[in-house]
Design a protein around this nucleic acid. Sequence first.
DNA 1: GTCTATAAGGTGATAGAC
DNA 2: GTCTATCACCTTATAGAC
Lengths: 195, 195
Amino acid sequence: MELQTETELKIVASAEKLFYQKGKAGTSMQNIADDAGINRTLLNYYFRTKDQLFEAVFRKALSGFVPLLASMFKSDEAFELLVPKVIHSIIDAMMANPQIPIFVLQELSSNPERMPQVLMDMGIDPEKVIKKGEGQAHFRHLIINLFSLCIFPFAARPVVTGLLFNGDNDAFVAAMHQRKEILPEMFLKLMSQNQ
Amino acid sequence: MELQTETELKIVASAEKLFYQKGKAGTSMQNIADDAGINRTLLNYYFRTKDQLFEAVFRKALSGFVPLLASMFKSDEAFELLVPKVIHSIIDAMMANPQIPIFVLQELSSNPERMPQVLMDMGIDPEKVIKKGEGQAHFRHLIINLFSLCIFPFAARPVVTGLLFNGDNDAFVAAMHQRKEILPEMFLKLMSQNQ
DNA sequence: GTCTATAAGGTGATAGAC
DNA sequence: GTCTATCACCTTATAGAC
């Protein structure tokens, strides 16, 4: 991590907020400068181009997941012991920054060719992941299930809140806390059934 | 449904494709006109503004889910019988148009205030949904689980394909077909375990 | 219905003064 | 590092000819 000036930090904070909310194309350099309370040309001074500023934000968004995935796919712990920890970690990460999943998934969906590089950056080798799972029946589906159950409620937050919690955001948050306790039990039963 | 001219259909088809891929802000009226092979001013002639064209696309994207959700929340069938049917329907809908979930979720995430209107358009009354589920323990989590398990793999398709299928798209599609058969069994066990 | 021409304004990026 | 001024370009939308 390089040293960052205060102005640089303000820029990234505003860029993060706006890119998360309105996307890359929906956010202008002027919007970001206004939000940060600085002159627009300073964005170019610090990041040269909009693309480079976006990349900085995108990488920062990804970086929050790196330790999670690393622990998941590199640990020697048995799946059954790992799962409850991973569920807690992922949901806590989502609570801290609920806009990241939809932001990252939208970007990867628009530019799927980025995926190999992203996996590289995270230090994940898909071949090893697949090899590690070979023993477990339906291991691909189980990994998909794990991430689905933890991440999707946040990606679909407005729908979930509107449909099931009468628009009450606090109720949604409370349910997600409860979910950290309920899911491991549910998930482990779901795992043991096959085979 | 009103009668539509050939030109109008071409416009919507191109707008759909581009809005799904690049989002509203990332797509210009010129892009759409070029893709449709028509003059740009015709877009304004048929839809007056970009906003109105986007609304037409957004509503069409939602309309695919209306019958699914309607059958889910209005049927008198027991949850246990309904679930396998719903899983099949949702996954089939996702296969037919894999870009819709991320498109819809991104739009609702940027504009959550749209949610009440969207539920109204779908003819869904959240109060009734909640009342119907009151008997089942953790019914909110179970509904969340159902949609998570069916929809998330498609929203996260590049990640899933890159991480678990070595970038092989056919393998992803095959796994999703298999998933239609596996999920109901998994999900029903997951339901019965509580309480 | 379809076109050309045009309006009014926003965009990202840079040069150059301080 | 921070500013003003300026660049060439792209944006949506509309007026008016055919």
